[in-house]
Write a protein that binds this DNA or RNA. Sequence first.
DNA 1: CACCGTTAAGTTTTT
DNA 2: CTTAACGGTG
Length: 747
Amino acid sequence: MKEVLKNLNEEQRSAVLHTTGPLMILAGAGSGKTRTLVTKISYLIETVGVSPFKVLALTFSNKAAREMRDRISTQVSSDAGALSVTTFHAFCARVLRSEAQYIGLSRNFTIYDTSESKAVIKQVLSRHGISTKELSPFEVMNYNEGLNNLGYYVGIDNEEEFDLDRSDPFFTYYNEYNAELRKSNAVDFGGLITGVIHLFEKFPDVLKKYVERFEYILVDEYQDTNRAQFKLLNMLSKEKRNICVVGDEDQSIYSWRGADIRNILEFEENYPEVQVLKLEQNYRSSRNIIEAASSVISRNIHRKGKEMWTSNPTGDEIEVVECFNEKEEAEFITKTILDLSKEGHSTREMAVFYRTNAQSRTLEDQLRRANIPYRVVGGVKFYERKEIKDMLAYLRVVVNEKDSLAYSRIVNVPSRGIGATTLRKLETVAVRDGLSLPQVVETIVDNLSNYKDLKLSAKVRSSLSMLSNMFMEARLSDSSGKSPVEIYEGILHESGYWDSLKARKDYESQARLENLEELSSAIKQYESSTEKPSLGGFLETVTLDTSNEEDTGQDLGEVSLMTIHGAKGLEFNHVFLTGVEENIFPSIRSLEESQDFGLEEERRLFYVAMTRAMEKLFICFAQGRMLYGQLKFNGPSRFINEIPNKYYHWKKVGKITGSSSGFSNDNNEYDDFNQECEFEDDEKTFMVSKNAPASKFNTGAKVIHSLYGEGSVINSEGTGQDEKVTIKFKDGVNKKFMVKFAPLTLI
DNA sequence: CACCGTTAAGTTTTT
DNA sequence: CTTAACGGTG
């Protein structure tokens, strides 16, 4: 047997050996799915003799693609560089660049990210005289993305299948938005996918070329694909049928982004000869954690069902930690991290998860105070900073002379006297002559005498001519092979951007200058890591690869902080799951949904969180927490109760903050979860009464209102006389009451 | 055109 | 409590 196959279990091995025909691998968390995929690809190349050129492996994140590429290259001796291991979006961008002319794009098209799409939508809406107050651009964006996710595009043949309401104003906005993109020679994220679908549907010969090339297609994280991606995969693989998809429906946490469970269910219909394999052995976590997580996820109805097991040791019990408030939750975590670290555990192997980014602050405060190094994964992105977006906009105008949006962003940044009035004049000419803004400016500058009626002031004229010349020069440099970083530096100074920031002495401008220098080194970094660096190539990397993993090179032993979404695919020895309270996790939004789908997705999220932990899992919640400036008493999450008792033990920690805490000790409360309690005791930490109270109308409690009937408490705020509760009634209506007045009875 | 004050709203975000 | 975004004023 080949050496590599020895490291695999039986199922993994059959996945690797199944080289022809469709294959669906349902792989549980920590079941070695990446190892299997990597081995499969190297087996195809090394043993079956498939040319790397003919293999296409698709992932969702650049991080995953990179990891897979790296791991393959250690296993494959032949030219792994010819392999296509990439994200869906990057793959589509590549196809569109080489076939752009077919669908009316030119190959230097710009990719718009979410904020740029939003700006275009705003423009469209304002043309209709709609303010952002009347209609949030987000709603339009959701509609547009919805169509994109389904694989719809302007000019599609089988339009009737989409059941569209053509009189819906949103449909009008959608069309105008796309016309606007087209005019700017731009494509949005979803448009990358639908653009390729468009290309393949209307030009079968082009499709044929790709079908011939990619004989073997592999897809990672298949549960997260949307309908558009599903369509694309089918077009590429229905002839050769060598398609292998790997997914886990229990880890599908992106349905709100269009991931469609039907893609798993219908795979078998599309490929009746499919072989389905399950990877159910978990190599990551202790048995306690696996069994606890399995039993939580088994409550979901919408799943195919897998039985996870592990031969790992039973391990410690999960610790459910009840804290007084979010600050003490953070203190508990900090203290535990220090303790574990003293015992010799690596802090690099520890992570703190939260449901929403906003929850990271308290944690960061405490960690900083305790001098524990940490890094926040996700958070504010480098490329979303204003100064970076400004400079990128300059570069985009260089690459794509039709990018009016980018142009209007920087035409007066730094301010050079080109205000709204001038811009409006330019736009009028643009519409009249069917040109983009940069093109219009160029024409005007070249034939000033023809545009006398625009009444442009001398200052405006000179500014415009400066811009026009600058861009012309830059384009010349670009096509004559000058390096991207030189062009960047040139524009940074010629545009006056650098000097205008330099002139300001405030701290913020200082930081911005530093960021601009960092951008410069990012471009250099790109140049040295790419074979044929180009300005356009750099811009594409920036938009499509947002993972700003700064490799500082040195291991400071940082604890990782991230949302649970950000934790997918990762593993840690010690995991702290925070804020596990009703209305937070599961989120209040998901609870408001009428169907169970929202709740089930939250449960999957909880499952993902649990299964990140290898050795030890802490599940923390706070009795009270400041939320939107108000103290909320949400009570522990229902998910905690869904873990069978034998897998965890419950402890309360916290210090007494004084009599003004708003808690009285007489009230008997939290009786539904009177588990065995263990009390921590040290100088700082005192035990909290076992009966720490909040209200008798706890979240989740069933009540009867003499007027509205039966319902359940979904939220409670304030204490004593001021206590208010929100109740969801049987008919789905939510109402808020003052406890002291409302005719409420507990059931 | 830049600044300030008011107001409203408030998940998750691989691309 | 925050943040973003709008409208009014100097």
